[in-house]
């Protein structure tokens, strides 16, 4: 059995890459993909802890996260399509209508 800490390290690295994507990228589609990466890292951590603690409920939470991620992606992509129709760009910096 691979020890738990290795999985925690991998999940941490994946999550940090997701944070980098959200903070440093300007294209909205890539930002959504980075959010998916972060959700994925959280799921990996949950599954690893489920094995460690013999808890099927942790795996059940992953199921719920999957469903919520699917809903989030659908709504986010609809917003992006709408944004592109209205503003003609995918750059997150151009969408500053509600900024002070």
């Amino acid at each position: 059995m691979v020890p738990l800490s290795w999985y925690v390290a991998v999940a941490c690295v994946l999550f940090t890459i997701g944070v980098i994507g959200v903070l440093a990228c300007r294209r909205t589609i890539v930002i959504l993909m980075a959010i998916e990466l972060m959700l994925n890292a959280g799921n990996l951590l949950l599954v690893a802890l489920a094995r460690e603690f013999w808890s099927a409920q942790a795996q059940a939470i992953v199921l719920f996260v999957l469903a919520v991620a699917a809903a989030e992606v659908a709504v986010g992509l609809a917003i992006i399509v709408r944004m592109f129709e209205l503003k003609g760009t995918l750059d997150i910096d151009e969408v500053n209508l509600m900024k002070w």
Binding site: C12, V13, F15, T16, V19, I20, V22, L23, A24, C25, R26, D93
Partner: peptide
């Protein structure tokens, strides 16, 4: 802005 974002993310990663 991208550089600042990258730095923030790395600080976050180091903290974790």
């Amino acid at each position: 802005l991208a550089v600042v974002g990258l730095a923030l993310a790395l600080v976050w990663g180091a903290g974790t």
